[in-house]
């Protein structure tokens, strides 16, 4: 299947515009719910409101890294069989990883601010914080590998292997609070365990997760398109350079060379 190069599909479509507007509207409602409607915590007081951004951010980061791993696996499986080298999987892996890194960074920043209020310090070398920062740096390395000047398919295949190895860190980060003694609290919501929070706080957290998912999906779609547009630009530039080279008049020396 030939690579799709229809530029009109590369910019916003009505569906993504709706998704973007929905993301903005949902974020406003999330801010109202998180800042005004949900009650303060008995122990943490107003500081608990950081939960509604901090927890969904890391969930979306995990989700993005899962998407990166699945796309990388598909890219590795299909890159040798398909005519177009399955590069859309590579693009999807890259865009999801970028969004994952942004949300991991956001988790670290909100966590540090929350930590200052509740623990009295921005940073503690505890298992959850340390493994999260390692996850962040590992995926920064992955993004650095993706930006290297090399054949796109070769680079993509190396990056895909790295993405699969890097994913080992995700369950380590998530379960670090259970495996080690840490200052960080246990997971607020966990499969097969009673939620740590209830009522308005519980619903606000779920709503925040939905909102951040919409924003994350919108960012991944647009980042995918920007990567494709960059590729089209590079291809066009290369074609232009080749054609301008062909149109160059031969210099005296090259003309003489051709005659001889």
């Amino acid at each position: 299947m030939p690579e799709r190069t229809d530029d009109s599909k590369m910019t916003a479509t009505p569906l993504t515009r709706v998704l973007g507007i929905l993301g903005i509207a949902a974020s406003v409602v999330m801010a109202v719910l998180g800042l005004f409607i949900s009650p303060p915590d008995v122990v943490q007081g107003e500081a608990v409101r950081m939960l509604y951004l901090h927890v969904p951010s890391i969930w979306i980061a995990y989700g993005s890294f899962v998407l990166t791993s699945i796309s990388s696996l598909l890219f590795l499986a299909r890159s040798k069989r398909r005519e177009d080298s399955g590069r859309h999987y590579d693009r999807l892996a890259g865009s999801a990883a970028e969004v994952g890194v942004v949300f991991t960074g956001l988790t670290l920043i909100t966590g540090m601010l929350w930590g200052k209020v509740t623990w009295g310090t921005y940073w503690q070398w505890d298992a959850r914080l340390t493994t999260t920062v390692l996850l962040f740096v590992t995926y920064l390395g992955y993004l650095a590998l993706r930006r290297l000047p090399a054949d796109p398919v070769v680079r993509g295949r190396r990056a895909a292997v790295m993405a699969l190895i890097s994913f080992i860190n995700v369950p380590i980060v998530h379960y670090s609070v259970d495996w080690w003694r840490t200052l960080h609290q246990k997971a607020s919501l966990s499969v097969g365990r009673r939620p740590e929070i209830t009522g308005e706080m519980y619903w606000t957290l779920l709503y925040s997760a939905l909102t951040v998912t919409i924003v994350g999906a919108w960012l991944i779609i647009h980042r995918y398109r920007v990567i494709r547009l960059e590729e089209i630009r590079d291809e066009e530039n290369l074609k232009m350079l080749i054609s301008s080279r062909h149109q160059e008049k031969p210099t005296d020396s090259t003309a003489a060379g051709e005659v001889s």
């Binding site: 740096v137 590992t138 920064l140 390395g141 650095a144 590998l145 290297l148 000047p149 090399a150």
Partner: peptide, 16 residues
């Protein structure tokens, strides 16, 4: 085999 391997390798290796 990559041109920037001298800076890339520590970035990949140290977190691991």
């Amino acid at each position: 085999g990559l041109r920037v391997r001298s800076t890339l390798l520590p970035l990949l290796l140290i977190p691991v």
